[in-house]
Amino acid sequence: MIETTFTPVSAAAGGAMIGMATVMLLALRGNVFGATGILAGFLSPSSSSDWAWRAAILAGLVSGPAAYFAFAGEMPAVEVPVAPWMVLVGGFLVGLGVTFGSGCTSGHGICGLARGARRSLVATTTFMITTGLTVYAVRHIWGGM
């Protein structure tokens, strides 16, 4: 386990920016800002114009750390406290889950809840509990990280 400290101010500032970004995309193009949906449509686009805006948003996402670097003078921290196989198996399960469940933390947890969608409330509650149980099992039962 790697210790991290509670950072309420930067969490709220970053959260507000994430919220504003979702509002921007709705106002500009009328879409919800689900990372999974944007990526899925980028990988298998329905038309070239549909692909272009997804490519633009992904380019924007990936430039986030560089923009952060421009004023913070360092890249945002990425500390991985788990074994490589957990990253790979975890990634694969996330890929299955977000496709079957039609969304992830951004699509269901922010955009869906903001719209008052019941599906998103069910999905968000389910994955938040499951993630908590998984972390508990790994850290306190199995002792794996």
């Binding site: 970053g14 633009a56 986030g64």
Partner: peptide, 13 residues
């Protein structure tokens, strides 16, 4: 919009 989201993720940790 993508950049703002990516920056928000970076700032928030």
């Amino acid at each position: 919009a993508g950049l703002l989201f990516g920056l928000g993720i970076s700032i928030s940790g």
